[in-house]
Design a protein around this nucleic acid. Structure first.
Length: 616
RNA sequence: GCCUCGAUGGCUCAGUUGGCAGAGCGGCUGACUUGUAAUCAGCAGGUCGAGGGUUCAAAUCCCUCUCGAGGCUCCA
């Protein structure tokens, strides 16, 4: 509905003739006039047909609101088709107009000009700032779409338990959390889903100060910019996670980031994230941006010829990006974004038995991979969620998962399956403000093979539907960065794993004359593929050390006359919290052993600090 | 979407009762040549988010709008 609101000293009208939609009116309604009046010119549009009652209610609120502000006691409702080029049906329009009249009658003197007549009118607008306003009112868009997923979730009755190392299931209320503080925080986070904290998460100022990532005001909220250091860390993580998946047998693929909303196979799946899509209106199609690589890979799988001999069959994509239009207030720093980079791996399995084997394997893979990234099992809590039916048949299997992580886990049991999976786990990071967010996750999907028509040929030549695993072994890469930064803020001496440190060795010459030696050392570092840089700025030693410490640089090498003479370095080892006299060869060996088998990339900034511009 | 808070130099922020727009950091220039977490001095830098109103006078009070942050909810 389009509204044009005019606060007028006076309006008067007179009907001149019928259109073919004209409503029946009494002789007395053929003329009308009002003084000190808020006149609402109204066009009802086709989109309003979706929910005429809601539109009428909203319009009543709007008109009432304005009328109160301008202190008008009289309201003239004036049907006026010329505000829109996409009009609703006359029937709906009449219905809405009558509702408006009824709804406003209690508080105002209301007159309604007849619908469907040619009319002449005269109006004198007051001309103050609020005297002319236009408004557009539309029915809330996602009303229908949302229902399925949300109703399903509400219907899904679930109960929480703690499963300990002995395989005993405890009610959380009676479980002794004293040795498992983080698990308790996680449970509270999951169960109560309610905490208030008006603090900015510590990683937010940190990501800016360290020139890692930042908000980009010119984009949509939740779309970040990454500075060279941030891009380097992110890129290393992306490479690493992808490499581990491929090592585990996954084939890397690439799929489109946008899809047609009208595609039949996608329709149902879209309900998973109701009202959370970024939409793009192309000429004829209504496209949406992917929120994972599921569609892309499933559509590819559907067209493949897959034999039982090819199973388990894995595909992976580092989705840069996946998009979810989260509500504005849900977005926070790097924890929750609207565009994010997520590794998405799918495994096509012969049957449930094979799916469970793979599930276990990917559970271990996720643990192992987070460990290399610098997130130890003390840093996250495990949730395993499944249906009652699955548990009754697979108690031992669940117990093994607990044994693998060697600590109690949170269990959620659903009375019935309400979505596409029967079993999932997540590793949840607990941050400095006691908030939990999911990192790694694997789900066993029993529904999508059939929905997408993904089949394999079995030994006997018959087509079968496989079971499909969804796996994000690290979770979103940005979220991994958030976890690393948050973890740092909880420690006395925060560190990043050496392989992820933007600068691995900082060389600090004491005097200008030491620059030659600094360059010589730098060359050796560079040749060995390690990231080193030189603080050649005209600053005091104390200042240079401080800046290096604030950057969490794992090895800070000071060189002066002494070191030059002894051909060695005075190195502050951040992790060991001590200083050592060491020669460059030995230092490189130490760093190599720490970064073995992990991705290496060159320095992302000029190696001389005097050459570096400031980003923040 | 709802609630709360905010927007002043590149960054972080101060600005009293409405009365000449400030500081620290960063930048630039110069001095200093330093031994393990901030050397000193000088200079430059502002349409106080936008529009309107009140007033002799608005960063400050009022209205509208825009943008941002946190929370609720949700998730990778």
């Amino acid at each position: 509905m389009r509204l044009l609101l005019i606060h007028a000293d006076r309006i008067e009208y007179e009907v001149k003739g019928k259109t073919k939609f004209a409503e029946e009116i009494k002789e007395s309604a053929k003329k009308g006039e009002m003084d000190e009046v808020l006149t609402a010119f109204i066009s009802i549009e086709s989109i309003d047909e979706k929910n005429p009652e809601e539109v009428a209610d909203k319009a009543i609120d709007e008109i009432r609101d304005v009328a109160q502000k301008v202190k008008a006691d009289n309201v003239m409702l004036y049907p006026y088709a010329h505000l829109s080029d996409d009009l609703g049906s006359p029937e709906t329009s009449m219905e809405i107009l009558k509702n408006l009249e009824l709804g406003l009658k209690e508080e105002f003197n209301v007159d309604r000009a007849p619908f469907g007549w040619y009319k002449s009118f005269e109006i004198s607008c007051k001309g103050h700032p609020l005297s002319e306003l236009s408004r557009r009112i539309t029915p809330s868009e996602e009303k229908e779409k949302e229902t399925t997923a949300i109703e399903a979730e509400e219907k899904a009755k679930s109960s929480f338990y703690i499963l300990d190392l002995n395989g005993d299931l405890h009610a959380p209320e009676t479980f002794n959390f004293s040795e498992h503080k983080n698990l308790e925080k996680f449970y509270i986070h999951e169960f109560s889903r309610r905490r208030t904290s008006d603090k900015v998460p510590p990683h937010v100022p940190l990501m800016r100060r360290e020139e890692i990532a930042d908000y980009e005001p010119a984009s949509d909220p939740g779309n970040m910019r990454y500075y060279p250091k941030g891009r380097l860390i992110k890129s290393l993580l992306e490479d690493y996670v992808l490499e581990r998946c491929m090592e585990d047998g996954a084939m890397e693929v690439e799929t489109p980031i946008m899809y047609d909303t009208a595609h039949p196979a996608l329709k149902e799946y879209l309900k998973r994230f109701p009202a959370r899509r970024y939409e793009i209106n192309s000429e004829k199609k209504k496209l949406f941006l992917r929120f994972s690589a599921c569609f892309g890979q499933f559509l590819m799988n559907k067209d493949m010829t897959i034999s039982y001999r090819n199973l388990p069959l894995k595909m992976v994509e580092m989705t840069r990006y996946s998009f979810r239009k989260e509500k504005r207030g849900e977005l926070t720093g790097l924890r929750r974004l609207r565009s994010f980079t997520m590794p998405d791996m799918h495994t096509i399995c012969y049957d449930m038995r094979e799916a469970m084997e793979e599930f276990k394997r990917q559970y271990r893979l996720s643990m192992d991979l987070l460990d290399d990234i610098g997130l130890k099992k003390e840093d996250y809590e495990v949730a395993i969620r499944f249906t009652r039916g699955f548990y009754d048949e697979n108690k031992e299997f669940i117990r093994e998962l607990v044994e693998t992580i060697k600590k109690p886990v949170l269990i959620e049991i659903w009375e019935e399956r309400f979505f596409y999976f029967v079993l999932k786990f997540e590793f949840n990071f607990i941050d400095a403000l006691d908030k939990a967010s999911a990192l790694s996750t694997v789900q066993i999907d029993v529904e999508n093979a059939e929905r997408y028509g993904i089949k394999f040929v079995d030994k006997d030549g018959s087509d079968k539907f496989p079971i499909i695993l969804h796996c994000s072994p690290s979770g979103a890469i940005e979220r991994v960065m958030y976890a690393l930064l948050e973890k740092g803020t909880m420690e006395d001496i925060p560190t990043l794993p050496t392989w992820l440190s933007p600068t691995q060795i900082r060389i600090i010459p004491i005097n200008e004359e030491d620059l030659d030696y600094a360059e010589e050392i730098y060359e050796k570092i560079k040749i060995s593929g390690i990231r080193g840089d030189i603080d050649d700025r005209d600053e005091t030693l104390g200042r240079k050390i401080r800046d290096a410490e604030m950057e969490w640089i794992p090895y800070i090498a000071v060189i002066g006359d002494r070191e030059k003479k002894n051909r060695n370095l005075s190195v502050t080892m951040r992790k060991k919290k001590e200083r050592e006299e060491i020669n460059i060869g030995d230092l490189l060996t130490i760093i190599k052993s720490e970064t073995e088998d992990l991705p290496m990339k060159r320095l992302s900034l000029p190696y001389k600090l005097s050459m570096r511009a400031k980003f923040v």
